[in-house]
Design a protein around this nucleic acid. Structure first.
Ligand SMILES: [Mn+2]
Ligand SMILES: [Mn+2]
Ligand SMILES: [Zn+2]
Ligand SMILES: [Zn+2]
Lengths: 140, 140
DNA sequence: AGCGTTAATGCAAAAGCTTCTCATCTATTG
DNA sequence: CAATAGATGAGAAGCTTTTGCATTAACGCT
């Protein structure tokens, strides 16, 4: 039960938290903004304020339940933390987001940080481009 | 003369533009925010508005004279475009920014995009960490 | 189940960065 | 030097995110 995840994070199990977590687990799009979440809650007739959405997402992030990314759009997107690190490739036309993992890149990054005397805490690699093979053009 | 760069961008050669470009060329820190630029202008007794700084930086970016980056701090940083692509490693403690180029990473990215059917327009790789070997701790 | 404590919530206001509006000013061209 | 298209500064407005505060709800303990 995901209630336990919330409890483990030292947070009370409240309706907003349960609903938001459920939503992240079941939502069509894996990468959603706070506004997206808020709109989905409205659509589901949940009376939850936008401030709460931001607060809860931040708490989930601090608890390691979700991850936050910045896809140079002026706002943050969140996704459930499934435990496997990955990077992103974003279509600048339709907005679709795909994920990838490349061990070679990961290794090189570590090497670079070592050489430059840095202790890595995290990294963010986003490739921007245009998808060529599908129904791009219209926003999803 | 950098006046020519401004003219080539289809922009009038005005005092704000010349001063901002000079400033980017001579500034201590290579990666600066609009606010940084504005403060430097104030310090140099230039009467240039913040709105103009933003406008000019945007125009310079469109003209390819500068590049804009987002180092998950909530604001954008700009740097002179010296023509050679590079990525960044940022100290989360002191804020120092270092640059690196890794051909292996660049190649892998291209391969990934190819495999996923994406035509790359750009990418942003930022490694966050803590510098271990120098006078970190105090902001620069 | 009922209580008390403490955290969580919704709403509105505010903050922080960036863009826009508009009246005024200036670079450019002939 | 005049005409004109473009640029500027100041402040207002825009957007995303955070905060303050009065109210409400969850939890632990009877
Ligand atoms: Mn992802
Ligand atoms: Mn750089
Ligand atoms: Zn697309
Ligand atoms: Zn440092």
């Amino acid at each position: 039960m995901e209630d336990q995840d919330i409890r483990n994070a030292g947070l009370k199990v409240t309706a907003p938290r349960v609903k938001i977590l459920e939503l992240l687990e079941n939502s069509e799009q894996q990468h959603v903004s706070a506004e997206d979440v808020y709109k989905m809650l409205l659509a589901a007739n949940e009376d939850i304020g936008l401030a709460t959405v931001y607060r809860v997402l931040t708490q989930f992030e601090e608890a390691g339940l979700v991850e936050k990314h910045h896809f140079e759009d002026g706002y943050s997107v969140y996704e459930l933390n499934k435990g496997k690190h990955h990077d992103h490739i974003v279509c600048v036309t339709c907005g679709r987001v795909k994920e990838f993992v490349d061990e070679t890149i990961e290794t090189r990054q570590q090497k670079i940080a070592d050489e430059m005397g840095f202790q890595i805490s995290e990294h963010e690699l986003v490739i921007y481009g245009k998808c060529v093979d599908d129904d791009c053009d219209l926003k999803p």
